[in-house]
């Protein structure tokens, strides 16, 4: 068995060894000419090429698109309009009344997304923390419960949306249960507040496990002797949580908050499948607005969609920079300790 493995290993590594021998001479020459920095650049080049091709270039093209109009796909065939698409998106007669905005549905989507981010992230963090605290205790069948909470993370967002639509639909499982108990059915997805709450609830259900897992890792890294000392001092559980658990969980918590914020700003698939943006525009979020304008409408406007996506990208960049800054601050604190 070992002999077969050895042979297989030799077959796999032989070409690599041969390649390394071929490259050795030019690489040594390169190192002599450019020094260590040159070698770093050489090894970074493949990643940078991929990043440029699939991230940087599309971003630049998208910015260029946002300054054009028309239905043509290729940039040279499109009409340059400068900042007109941004003006169209941002122009309002009265910013306290979204109906006076030229692109009222962009503003409605922005307002909905803002509300969604605040509510969903807050509730998600609270729920994920409680879940992590429970899963951190010595429960029976702990692995089973951890799997239960993590399972929805493994589902495709479209499947999540379909499952919950099947439950919340007018003829869905929930209404069937209500009718079975002698109660009146409720149009869960046709009433604005219910539909918005459903979008929040379903996305929390879908992502809770992921964030709870990050917090659980943080909880398990807290030294047990701190809790033992608190217990010997007769400290109340609430005080233990606020004075020991939460401060020591903060590095993980910050990661969770920023990741949850970014995901919430990008909300689309589960909510779109669940509510289609309705009732009316009650659950129309920014990503759906961009999708509708750029792809789904009968007369597509890729320039306007690109401008909206650049504005949304700006928000995401701010959140990402926030995450980086917080990460660095935590790193510095860790070094100081």
């Amino acid at each position: 068995m070992t002999g077969v493995k050895g042979m297989l290993g030799a077959v796999v590594t032989a070409p690599l060894v041969a390649l390394a021998r071929v490259l050795e001479v030019p690489l040594r020459l390169w190192q002599r000419l450019t020094g260590q920095g040159g070698m770093v650049a050489f090894f970074l080049l493949p990643n940078m090429a991929i990043f440029t091709l699939f991230v940087l270039l599309p971003l630049v093209i998208n910015i260029a698109y946002s300054m054009t109009t028309g239905a043509a796909l290729f940039l040279p065939e499109r009409t340059y309009v400068g900042a007109a698409q941004y003006e169209r998106l941002l122009r309002c007669t009265d910013y306290t009344n979204l109906m006076t905005c030229q692109e009222d549905q962009f503003w409605i989507a922005l307002r909905n997304t803002g509300t969604f981010v605040v509510l969903q992230v807050t509730l998600l963090i609270v729920a994920a923390t409680i879940t992590a605290l429970i899963l951190n205790r010595a429960l029976r069948a702990l692995s089973f419960w951890r799997a239960v909470f993590f399972f929805p993370v493994l589902l495709s967002p479209v499947v999540v949306g379909l499952i919950w639509r099947w439950i919340l639909d007018r003829n869905g499982v929930l209404n069937a249960a209500l009718v079975g108990m002698g109660m009146d059915p409720v149009n869960w997805l046709l009433e604005r507040n219910y539909a918005f709450s459903a979008a929040i609830g379903v996305t929390i259900w879908a992502h809770l496990g992921f964030f709870a897992l990050i917090l659980l890792a943080g909880l398990q890294a807290i030294p047990r002797d701190l809790y033992e000392a608190a217990e010997m001092d007769g400290t109340k559980p609430a005080r233990v949580f606020w004075r020991i658990t939460l401060p020591l969980l903060m590095p993980n918590m910050l990661v969770v908050i920023v990741l949850a914020l970014i995901r919430a700003v990008q909300v689309f698939d589960e909510a779109y499948v669940l509510t289609g943006g309705g009732p009316g525009t009650a659950t129309l979020f920014l990503t759906q607005y961009i999708y509708e304008v750029g792809f789904a409408s009968l007369l597509k406007n890729p320039g306007l969609a690109a401008a909206a996506s650049i504005l949304m990208g700006g928000v995401l960049i701010v959140l990402t920079l926030l995450q980086l800054a917080l990460g660095k601050r935590n790193e510095r604190k860790g070094r100081l300790k």
Binding site: Q105, R170, N171, N187, L189, L190, A195, T275, G276, G277, G278, P279, G280, T281, A282, T283, L284, Q288, E292, A296, S297, L298
Partner: peptide
């Protein structure tokens, strides 16, 4: 029926055939 028109936004197409069939 509210479901067909109200429960979506934008110009999303929705048929009500299943409601008639059911």
């Amino acid at each position: 029926l509210r479901d067909t028109w109200v429960a979506a936004s934008g110009s999303t197409y929705r048929a009500a055939a299943d409601d008639f069939i059911n």
